[in-house]
């Protein structure tokens, strides 16, 4: 078997692991949000329990990247694939952590049914889910335009988080009894904002892999 064939196999295996990771994180996110929005503490506990499997998968992906780098010394697009894999692996794992944290907020909403509906959290959840789905497809199809579309969506999530922030601060000021639940809603809103940031990072890494352009921190360098 030629080295190239072997490398192609190793890369295919890495791709499968990343696709599995993306799928699991997507499922965690869906369940975490359903738990939060429906105040379903059982589902929230399931999400918390499943986080270990994501951590395990993160290590497996890192091992596979290390193995390919050590044995095949890849260059050009193969090297960019590896760099991307290491980075998006971390992003996905962090999204998994945020899902776990969102689930931990669930129990504090039990005594305040319907309150979450007064915030932008449900819309943020829809938008973030959409971003996660789109990065998955962008990775599967190697579609740089789709990846770039995800980046634009992050701004909308950021705006909704800013609106939530002022609204929840006012709510806390006007009704001291709600202070604790408001703190948890703020945490959840921030968590969603971070999840969309990570989805954006994944999208930028995908663009880097396909185009060879580092589009992070725009303004520091002009894209070539």
């Amino acid at each position: 078997m030629s080295n190239r064939t072997q490398l192609d196999r190793e890369l295919a295996s890495l791709r499968s692991l990343i696709i599995e990771m993306a799928g699991r994180v997507d499922e965690q996110f869906a369940d975490a949000m359903n738990a939060l929005l429906n105040v379903d503490t059982d589902l929230a506990d399931t999400v918390i329990e499943r986080d270990d499997a994501i951590d395990e998968l993160e290590m497996q992906i890192d091992d596979q990247c290390e193995r390919i780098l050590a044995l095949h010394a890849p260059v050009a697009v193969d090297l960019r694939m590896l760099i991307m894999a290491v980075k998006i692996n971390t992003d996905f794992e962090r999204i998994g952590d945020h899902c776990r944290n969102l689930s931990r907020n669930t129990e504090y909403l039990v005594e305040w049914p319907g309150l979450i509906e007064e915030t932008h959290i449900p819309e943020m959840a829809d938008m973030s889910r959409c971003m996660l789905r789109e990065v998955e497809v962008a990775f599967l199809d190697q579609d740089r335009l789709k990846a770039r579309k995800v980046i634009a969506r992050d701004l909308q999530v950021n705006r909704m988080h800013a609106d939530n922030f002022s609204m929840l601060v006012n709510m806390s000021k006007s009704d001291g009894e709600r202070a604790e639940v408001v703190a948890h809603l703020l945490t959840a809103s921030k968590g969603l904002e971070r999840i969309s940031d990570h989805a954006k990072n994944v999208a930028k890494s995908i663009v880097f892999m396909i185009e060879g352009n580092d589009i992070r921190h725009s303004g520091l360098r002009s894209e070539s």
Binding site: S2, N3, R4, L7, P74, V75, A76, V77, D78
Partner: peptide
Amino acid sequence: TEAYVTGR
């Protein structure tokens, strides 16, 4: 070039 340096 990419095909050559990556061994394709």
